[in-house]
């Protein structure tokens, strides 16, 4: 227990770094995902294929491999940046694909009839997209978007072994010097992650019940 009390400030700063890393990487990934999703639902077949190809490639490379590339291989190529920044880029490349899929699944969940009704009333393609598809699709996307964000927060822990002193990395450093407090440190770390992920999961479930309107 002493190890925890003595190092509470270090752990707290690790927790805050996790929050910061997740927030920044979450923001850039979401932005990237929106662009990819825009490609995926555009009327240009080439853009759709680019989006599909990106998702198929990046989603199937493990997060650890993405971070390995950013932190071990990029420096070999002469590109140097702080680990924190590299971790954000690595997570973004990976999670843009997931955010894209979350938006796409929301759009896919729209009934075909909604689109037909809009067309039959004389709305143009872009009006149908803006006024019928996006409002419903984005609303459908909220639960998968939250779940993707939870997954992202958990994946940022991998950055801890690649030299970023976020919560998990901090824990590893503390374990190195306090090998008698392994379990206690892990427990505290686990609680730290749960404090973010469990409320988010509850929120996702609540939103899911709320948006479950059917036509």
């Amino acid at each position: 227990m002493n190890a925890i009390i003595e190092n509470i400030d270090v752990l707290l700063s690790g927790f805050l770094t996790t929050l910061g890393l997740s927030a920044l990487a979450g923001f850039t990934s979401f932005f990237g995902g929106l662009i990819l999703a825009g490609f995926a639902i555009s009327n240009n077949p080439t853009l759709r294929k680019i989006s599909m190809l990106y998702v198929a490639l990046m989603q199937n490379i493990p997060a650890a491999a993405h971070l390995f590339f950013m932190i071990f291989i990029l420096p070999v190529l002469g590109l140097k940046a702080p680990f924190f920044v590299l971790a954000i880029i690595g997570v973004t490349i990976y999670f843009s694909a997931y955010y894209c899929q979350a938006v796409r699944s929301g759009v896919n969940a729209i009934g075909r009839g909604q689109l037909e009704a809009s067309r039959a009333l004389g709305l143009k393609n872009m009006q149908t997209m803006r006024l019928v598809v996006l409002p419903q699709g984005l609303r459908n996307s909220v639960p998968p978007l939250i779940n993707t964000t939870i997954a992202l927060i958990k994946v940022t822990a991998i950055a801890g072994v690649f030299g970023v002193t976020e919560l998990f990395g901090t824990m590893l450093q503390l374990i190195n010097v306090n090998d008698s407090a392994v379990i206690a440190l892990m427990l505290v770390t686990g609680i730290g992650y749960s404090l973010i992920t469990i409320p988010a999961a509850l929120a996702a479930a609540a939103v899911e019940r709320k948006v479950a309107f059917n036509s």
Binding site: G111, G113, A117, A120, G122, Q136, S215
Partner: peptide, 16 residues
């Protein structure tokens, strides 16, 4: 199409 009204089997009212 804006001059042709259509009524569907599944109503297809805009859910939102």
């Amino acid at each position: 199409r804006s001059e042709v009204g259509m009524v569907f089997q599944q109503f297809n009212l805009f859910a939102h």
